[in-house]
Design a protein around this nucleic acid. Sequence first.
RNA 1: GCCGAUGUAGCUCAAUUGGCAGAGCAAUGCUCUUGUAAAGCAUAGGUUAUGGGUUCAAAUCCCAUCAUCGGCUCCA
Length: 608
Amino acid sequence: MSEQNIPYEETDLYRIRHSSAHVMAEAVLEQFPEAKLAIGPPIEDGFYYDFDLGKDDNDKPITFSEEDLEKIEAKMKQLLKKNAPFEHSSMSIAEAEQFFADQPYKIELIEDLAAGRLDENGNPTTEPANEVSIYKQRDFVDLCRGPHVKFTKQVKANAVKLLRTGGAYWRGDEHKPQLQRIYGTAWHNRVELEQYLERLEEAKARDHRRLGKDLGLFHISPLVGAGLPLWLPKGTVLRMQLEDFLRQAQTARGYLPVITPHIGKLDLYITSGHYPYYKDSQYTPIELDDDKFLLKPMNCPHHIEIYKSQPHSYRDLPLRLAEFGTVYRYEQSGELNGLTRVRGFTVDDSHLFVTPEQLEDEFIAVVDLIQYVFETMGFHDFRARLGVNDSDSDKYAGTPEMWAQGIKAIKQAADKAGLNYVVEEGEAAFYGPKLDFIFRDVLKREWQLGTVQVDFLLPERFDLEYTAVDGQKHRPIMIHRAPFGSMERFVGILIEHFNGAFPLWLAPVQVTVVPIADRHNAYAYEVADKLKQAGMRVEVDASSDRMNKKIRNAQLQKIPYMLVVGDREAADGTVAVRTRANEDRGDMALSVFIEQATTLVETKSMDL
RNA sequence: GCCGAUGUAGCUCAAUUGGCAGAGCAAUGCUCUUGUAAAGCAUAGGUUAUGGGUUCAAAUCCCAUCAUCGGCUCCA
């Protein structure tokens, strides 16, 4: 398409979606004449519009029902076909305030525009506006910067669909009124719409919650607790492959393993400064006698205490302490989601204690490790984001100097490593700036995974020191880092990315041996034993099912290899190799298969 | 946490307006001994998420709680 290289805001699709939002609002007003309009922008793949429908007799907010949505969609399609031009004009602030007098949200937007505070998207503006831009189709007039299509008919009625409703806070602030949002999608034509809907179906089919159940990877029991996943044997095998891989990579890079308990005294987190920041998302402290203990929300304080357990010379540094450390955060109930958003999760955590001279090299080495990990996973589409503090936010600790120093260190190291990154305000940790690695999966969805943070604050808080060449005590700097981020989220993403068909080295079961009839079971077990001796994870399907059924079951479990064995194979010492890609490779000597498979495992190949 | 929807067998779903809770798959048993994506027959499986309430009668209506899903806010 010709639109690929121009900004989204300038594309036809953007206009189509923006115009769809207006026509949808027009349709809503026909059904709900009292609705107050908030904002209705185009978004990725579609658009939304927020409405305030007022309260019912019981003072409960009026919401859209599913039937409402259908009616609105039908009405909207009618309005699209009943052609009308989008007319652009402007009004003075005073005119606009009068015109939108019964639209409080529009008034707020107009006032912000007039004062030069915020534009209609909530972004800061530089200059106060004298007049505002408006768009009109038929009797529907909206405060809007545009652009729009010229006529409503340019939005094809069969290329638009309303998807869902939901609550949304005015201006994204949970202390402000909650509005009713309708999401819709709009495309150039019907075919594109259908393709998009298919994409949604595809995403649903690879949902890790669905696959996690079907493939027996994890389970979440309400009795254990929401957001506290139980790892089933197959999920555990998968996770352990990841952990072993990283552990090995870390050992090769001079990391030292440590293990720390799941709780710690409240005082520890008060010293670290975590407590005030995590108070709201924290399991309440456990009180015993005169002490209070917290389920740890972070591993750093424990690792710091390990550092402090003995005096350090500059010769000991950098000290790289690594642990798969499980932390607990009491996330809001509405936030929980399978493995990707949980209340107890394991961070592939490490804390590096370094001298100022070592900071840059160590940071680069960490970035290098993260990239190595991603590449090994077959994650090639990722970007980096430098999260810095928000100048006017009070949620960050430390001095401006510390922040400047940290940001500078990250920038220098990232530049030296040749890494492209974008800077985003308000994306820092409370104790320092961080570099996040954001991965785009096969469905083009973005996930924040690995993270590296430079920290001058905690060494200060805990009064960390080492003896330098000059014989004086100096303050080390800490680097916090986690390539996977959290094992739970990472595995969740991995499941969706691979659609449950993991590369051989990660597959919980790598091979299923399929005996054709009972009399082949003995040979099947013999084959399985040899595979196990070669380090393969293998199952024998000795059930009374037909061979076809056994193959089907293995296919559904996305097991990489099915080895069919019958009279021929038993006589020749061979196996008939079939892959989950429906590929029949015919008979081959077992030794040849083992040779091939183990090589693929060793090289962590994506191929079968 | 907020707004909305949902919760029936291990899984996927049925059950007219309130009137005896059912099917497919999975499980178990038996028969068949099978050559690359579902053999046949039989058996078992449920306090309809939990706790209250309305009713002669509740899976169905009402209330509360828990959980899940879709959004918002927040985040690894």
